[in-house]
Computed example of a mutant assay.
Amino acid sequence: MAGRTKLKETPPWVPFEDRRRARDEKREAVLRMAVKMFLTEGYHRTTLNEVAARLNITKPALYNYFRSKEEILVECYRIGQDTYDAMIEALDSLDGTGLDKVRALIRAYVKAITSEFGMCVTRLDERELSPEARASVRRSKRGYDTAFRSRIEEGIADGSILPCDPKLAAFAIAGSLNWIGHWYDPDGPLSAEAIANEFAERLTGGIAAH
């Protein structure tokens, strides 16, 4: 009797970690496509049908990851906020004068605002969010303002920044930086780093002590 060949069978179940990783990757793909469309087409003009079509999936498949367009928007804002918060936290231990720290904060802020999710925080209308999500975004924005003010105050104290109103100076800097998110083109002639360095010099030229 001829020996039987023992077939190796591959279990049909994918390991849990692989399933979770695949789900996370697909969820991130939905977010990246949605934020790209929100920024280029506008939140109201973007439909979940269009997002699903761009991803080559069905709308019901998209609901496996998000229950609504608003939920996607909230998550885009959250990722954008986390980007800014991480940027500020990374500068907490920075040495140097107050002026050095303001310039470093400007460079970091530009890096954050030129990312897709960072642009979301300044370009999309936060009034589209639920009251709870909107309050969270506004708290974060106050945190960015406080970060600029405190470093300007530090510079005034150590003599690296001329005496000025820290609140108005912070508004002037943040207002200029926020507009970058409206005109920055990642395929344009200027890199985010070049823009960051230029703005760090130009926006502090009027307050730097010489």
Rank of each mutant, 00 (worst) to 15 (best):
A2Q: 10
L7F: 09
P12M: 08
R20Q: 13
A22T: 11
A34R: 03
V35I: 12
F38H: 04
T40E: 15
T40C: 00
Y43M: 06
T47M: 05
L48V: 07
N56R: 14
K59H: 05
A61W: 05
Y65L: 01
E70I: 07
E70Y: 00
I72Q: 10
V74D: 10
V74Q: 14
I79H: 06
T83H: 10
Y84I: 07
D85N: 13
A90L: 03
L91E: 14
S93N: 12
T97L: 06
A108S: 15
Y109G: 01
I113A: 13
T114K: 06
G118V: 10
V121L: 11
R123Q: 14
D125S: 12
R127K: 12
L129K: 09
S130W: 02
S136T: 14
V137A: 15
V137G: 08
R138L: 14
R139D: 13
D145I: 00
T146G: 01
A147V: 08
I156S: 02
A157M: 04
D165F: 00
D165C: 04
A169G: 01
S176E: 06
W183T: 11
Y184K: 03
D187Q: 13
G188F: 05
P189A: 09
S191F: 02
E193M: 00
A196G: 05
L203P: 05
G206W: 09
G206T: 08
G206A: 11
